[in-house]
Design a protein around this nucleic acid. Structure first.
Lengths: 334, 334
DNA sequence: ACGAGCCGTGTAAACGTTTACTTTCCGCGC
DNA sequence: GCGCGGAAAGTAAACGTTTACACGGCTCGT
């Protein structure tokens, strides 16, 4: 690999001049610039990022750790984060925790070693020592989608409680009384919160949730299939099921269809997280739509605020209930 | 940030000893090791990746550039690549080209600066000077999904031609005679090849493809919507449409449903790339399934072979035609 | 005509590691 | 008792940049 010294020699100048040309410093003559650029071209020189970041302290890379690459929610989020970051002149290194706290920590470690300017984290599980360390050392960090108990960190998230309540209201209005939930892990705020809101909303209608109607999944497809099976293969299955994320909803749907059942008429089905294809299923899936893109963008803006010494505000974005047909037809008056 | 010097001072040893402890070198007494580790803990020391990679030449990072993060095909691919790479002790840095040659080059540049050991690339467009440069400098590279004209590089891809032919045979067997295609960009091998195979397959049945039945999209959703509109809003629309990737199929489906039409009975629809939710649409979408995960894993294995001085073989993986209902019912004898 | 100031360039130190080489110390065999 | 070998630890050079500082030559105002 050609180094800056090779370029300097080839162009007949010093390394300082080469560096200045490369970094658009003003004080270089047009002639030097040209000679350097020619040499760069000829030698196919690429600056060594390691040396550069080692020397100059100004870091322009943000770190992002998402929960699961296979979850469209997170990829859309990642995409939004990257776009917003680039618009502010930052690059993003993304790590995929795969909903596994160990892998989350691995990536936090890598990102810290890479000296990212700041971190965006969708926490997978309860507070990890590494996260605490990041905080303790004052490294800027913004959480997305999920907060962490016991740590007062800026977080950009959805208003899970309100959205869940609206969904339950909708189900009850349709006549459902035995409503089950496929919840996310209770170790995650997202999981706990949606479950709590679900319980509270039913209670407001004078309904109670039996323990057997609460299944705990892991936000991934397979657990949705399994949970749906457990709920339905009982003598007294619920009439509607609320899946707390889109992958578990996909799993639940798969179980239902594999049994030759039809959502809506045979069993009500609703999802937290809306996806483009939900409208194409027969019947279309009722879902809570989150402002995913805005979550990503807002998180980046808060992180950049932090980087510039301004305080970051936590933000809670409203969701929208998208009513389609998968919970059954409206019965009687609204 | 604490450096290795701080740790050395705190532990009362030299930086060399600290480094040895950190890298599991044998000749360190248990006592020194302990003191160092304690200091590391106390100071919350994290090695500086830049300094480390600058000094030691052994790189354990692979670079991956994918076409579009929002395309499930690529995220599944990325996931497989990461898994296989980790199994071999490599990390992966992923860049999202967004089907934009400029962004592809940007990421190639970044990855080269990061001194990755080797590159995995899903080329977005015709040969870029940067790719040529990578090749010229002998940097190991393996292409995925798409090859590049004029460059003889190892590539792991699907057998597009056979799969397309099988799909056309299926459509013709169902009675379709006017079949249109929403093709990918002809600047991409994937696009060109599927289009050529499509034409050839129809020709084999004595059918010809009118120019107006060939729409060129960009492998993204919006272009699928637009193309479907152009095809169908004519006095003599085709009876079936083949979308050359899953996102354009999603777009086509959206157009169809927005018009209140029904795939299968009103218009045949098939997709290259199978997705989990295709089976849930009414009627389920017929598609060509690629061995996405195996593509990713195989590409990593070839790249690692290259890194170890062995030659890499190009591989073409077979696809599977998954017949569902979206192209209409079988009419008459098989 | 001469010093001040500026511009372009070069020299060399610094960034935080790893590692070849050196030093120290200890035990052992003769 | 002496030298030798080997283990543990230290010293310092090197990786490829950026950049503070120094320097020489030029312009310009007086």
């Amino acid at each position: 690999m050609a180094t800056i010294k090779d370029v300097a020699r080839a162009a007949g100048v010093s390394t300082a001049t080469v560096s200045r040309v490369l970094n658009d410093h003003p004080s270089v003559t047009a002639e030097s610039r040209e000679r350097v650029l020619a040499a760069v071209e000829r030698l196919a020189y690429h600056p060594n990022a390691a040396a550069r970041t080692l020397r100059s302290a100004d870091v322009t890379t943000l770190g992002l750790v998402i929960g699961d690459v296979l979850n469209p929610f997170f990829t859309e989020l990642a995409r939004a984060v990257e776009d917003e970051a680039r618009a502010h002149g930052y690059y993003v290194i993304t790590g995929n925790a795969d909903e596994d706290p160990r892998r989350q920590d691995e990536y936090l470690d890598i990102l810290l070693e890479q000296r990212v300017a700041g971190l965006l984290l969708c926490p997978t599980d309860r507070v990890s020592p590494l996260v605490e360390e990041v905080v303790r050392r004052g490294r800027p960090i913004v959480l997305i989608d999920r907060s962490i108990d016991g740590l007062d960190l800026p977080v950009v998230r959805s208003d899970n409680a309100t959205a869940t309540r609206e969904l339950v209201d909708h189900l009850v209005a349709l006549g459902h009384r035995r409503i089950a939930i496929i919840s996310g892990p209770t170790s995650l705020v997202t999981g706990r919160e949606r479950l709590a809101a679900f319980r509270a909303a039913l209670a407001a209608h004078g309904l109670e949730v039996a323990d057997r109607d609460v299944r705990i999944g892991d936000f991934q497809t397979a657990s949705g299939v399994a949970a749906m099976g457990e709920l339905m293969e009982r003598p007294d299955p619920p009439t509607a099921v609320f899946a707390a994320d889109n992958l578990m909803a996909l799993g639940a749907l798969r179980w239902v269809r594999d049994r030759g059942l039809r959502p809506g008429s045979d069993i009500g089905l609703a999802s937290f997280d809306d996806l483009p294809w939900f409208e194409f299923v027969d019947p279309p899936i009722t879902a809570v739509r989150q402002q995913t893109e805005e979550m990503g963008r807002a998180a980046v803006r808060e992180l950049i605020a932090l980087l510039n010494g301004r305080p970051a505000r936590s933000r809670t974005l409203p969701c929208q209930l998208v009513i389609r047909g998968s919970c059954g037809e409206r019965q009687g008056a609204q």
